[in-house]
Amino acid sequence: MSGRRAEAERQGRRGETLACWYLWLTGWRILARRQRVGAGEVDVVARKGRTVAFVEVKWRRTAQALDLAIDAHRLRRVARAAEVLAARYAKVGDDIRIDVILIAPGTWPRRIANAWQPGA
């Protein structure tokens, strides 16, 4: 892994840790991190009451860069992975959703709840 790629990986993991802290402080329980399946990867799986969120975390160097950090292609991959993982983490009657948390230095995390709708 190149030095640049390794640094991006470290920053990504740091962003995921910050996202977990943010979720925990706002009442979510972290169920899992970095869940990989053939269909893709989910950065964080969290629960709050009867809602299970499959969370994509994006870290960028600037807040402006966050505006381009997530797109439909990435969300589709998370949604496919969430479909596979839902049986492991959700119970009958739970609401399941895809959330995004955007993080940049010097800013509060920006959370997009229910960022992906089936069929979108």
Rank of each mutant, 00 (worst) to 15 (best):
W59C: 06
R36T: 13
R4N: 11
G106K: 09
Q35C: 12
R74Q: 15
R47M: 12
A86K: 06
G119M: 09
R76H: 08
C20T: 06
E83V: 01
H73E: 15
A120S: 12
I101W: 09
L85I: 10
A65F: 02
P118L: 15
D67H: 09
R10E: 05
P109V: 14
R10D: 05
P118M: 15
V44H: 02
Q11G: 01
E56A: 15
E16A: 06
I103C: 11
V78E: 09
I112A: 07
G27H: 06
L25S: 06
R76P: 00
V37W: 01
A6T: 13
V84F: 04
E7C: 12
R88S: 15
A6I: 14
W21I: 11
Y89P: 03
E41Q: 14
V44Q: 02
G3C: 08
A19Y: 05
A82R: 08
G119R: 12
L68D: 14
Y22S: 10
G27L: 11
K48R: 15
A81K: 02
T26M: 00
D94T: 06
V42E: 02
R33T: 13
A115M: 11
Q35T: 07
Y22D: 14
R10K: 01
R60L: 03
V57F: 04
G106D: 10
M1H: 08
A82T: 04
P109H: 02
R111T: 12
L23C: 01
I30F: 06
R29K: 11
R97S: 09
A69R: 03
R110H: 11
L18C: 00
A53L: 05
R50S: 15
R13P: 01
I96G: 00
A82D: 09
R97T: 13
R50A: 14
P109Q: 13
I96N: 03
A115K: 01
L18V: 08
T51K: 07
A53V: 11
R36A: 11
G15K: 07
L31F: 12
Q11A: 10
A72Y: 11
A79M: 09
A86R: 10
D95I: 15
Q11P: 00
A79F: 15
R13W: 05
A8I: 04
W116H: 11
V100G: 05
I112P: 00
I112T: 00
T62N: 03
R13G: 10
W24P: 00
W21K: 10
A8Y: 07
D94Y: 05
V37E: 05
A87M: 07
A115V: 01
V55Q: 09
D94M: 11
G27E: 04
Y22A: 08
V55S: 10
L23T: 05
A113H: 04
I70N: 10
R50C: 10
E9F: 07
I96H: 01
R97I: 09
I96S: 11
V92T: 14
W21Y: 13
W116V: 07
V42Q: 05
I101Y: 04
A113P: 00
W24S: 15
L18N: 06
T107E: 14
D71M: 03
R10L: 12
I103Y: 04
C20D: 13
G49T: 12
